[in-house]
């Protein structure tokens, strides 16, 4: 498909100053510069009636139509901003006669997750996990799975910091096969689950995202014992220590819903907060001691019981 490659290059090299005019509706957009590039097309910053917007353009008609369909169904979810607002959909006939497919959406400004953590350290890990899980929870409740959940598809908006996803290209209805994925974040690639769209599919990618922050060069996939290998990668990161049990459960597909995972994560955050600023240290220690005492009693009892049987 030599032709496909040439077209792709065209799509990713539209020069600033190019005027894109819709074939059906006639709206015009002035290209300001490129924001990013993915498997399906390229996203540009553009000017539309004094308003700044993001324009995604591609030669892939099917994928573009499906993305627009997703954005439209997300808009019907009242009060939930689960995706960028869709502003326009049209075709563009380039000067060379080729047809391209584009849609215009709200421009979401922010910095990359990696830049953010480099600047602000790891104290935002917990809040971001909760924010992302809350969004996933809403999305899953609407019957969708994000699919291609990865670091590149997330940005952090500032004041106050809020993590948000930007590309909805992989969103798939629950029960179908995942539309788009990236190996490293895909449980199928790791041999740890199917590519069927289920909430647990996203939760696996979620765990990988927070792991990848500490492994910017990623890590290879071993031939065997892959789950254990990922567990070890988690255990080696000090900053992830409090979250390790939750992340491991996500990796092994133990959470059926994002709500379950959020609940356990909130408990972790609560414990962390108590540990960091104990208002009443004696009481805390006391309860910790009490807990340890009971655990001791129960394990001793079960130990005895196993002997009796």
């Amino acid at each position: 498909m030599a032709m496909n490659r040439i077209l792709k290059k065209q799509v990713s090299s539209i020069k600033p100053g190019t005027l894109i005019k819709g074939k059906f509706k006639g709206n015009t957009y002035l290209i300001n510069g490129k924001l990013g590039e993915g498997a399906i097309g390229a996203v540009y910053l553009c000017q539309a009636n004094r308003q700044v917007a993001a324009l995604k353009i591609s030669e892939n008609q099917t994928s573009m139509s499906l993305e627009v369909n997703v954005l439209k169904s997300l808009e019907q979810v009242r009060g939930n901003r689960l995706g960028p607002a869709l502003l326009d959909v049209d075709d563009w006939t380039a000067p060379n006669g080729r047809t391209f497919y584009f849609y215009v959406m709200e421009y979401v400004k922010g910095e990359t997750v990696r830049d953010f953590f480099q600047k602000h350290g790891t104290s935002w890990l917990g809040p971001f996990m909760i924010q992302l899980l809350e969004d996933l929870e809403k999305l899953h409740q609407e019957g969708w799975v994000f699919g291609d959940l990865k670091t590149e598809n997330l940005i952090v908006r500032s004041a106050p910091p809020r993590i948000r996803w930007v590309d909805v290209g992989g969103m798939t209805q629950i029960g179908r096969s995942i539309k788009e994925y990236t190996d490293f974040y895909d449980r199928g690639y790791w041999g740890l689950g199917s590519r069927r769209a289920e909430p647990s599919y996203d939760l696996f990618s979620f765990a990988i995202i927070f792991l990848e922050i500490f492994y910017p060069n990623r890590f290879p996939r071993p031939e065997k014992n892959r789950k254990k290998y990922i567990y070890q990668r988690i255990d080696q990161v000090k900053a992830l220590k409090p979250y390790a049990p939750v992340l491991k459960k996500a990796i092994s597909g133990k959470y059926q819903t994002s709500t379950e995972m959020k609940r356990e994560l909130k408990q972790v955050l609560l414990l962390l907060r108590q540990r960091n600023n104990p208002r009443n240290p004696e009481e805390n220690d006391g309860s910790g001691f009490k807990e340890a005492f009971w655990i001791f009693i129960i394990s001793a009892f079960s130990f005895l019981l196993s002997f009796m049987i």
Partner: peptide, 9 residues
């Protein structure tokens, strides 16, 4: 694009 979207679905 609107009608097309429905068919592609």
């Amino acid at each position: 694009p609107e009608k097309r979207g429905e068919i592609i679905e």
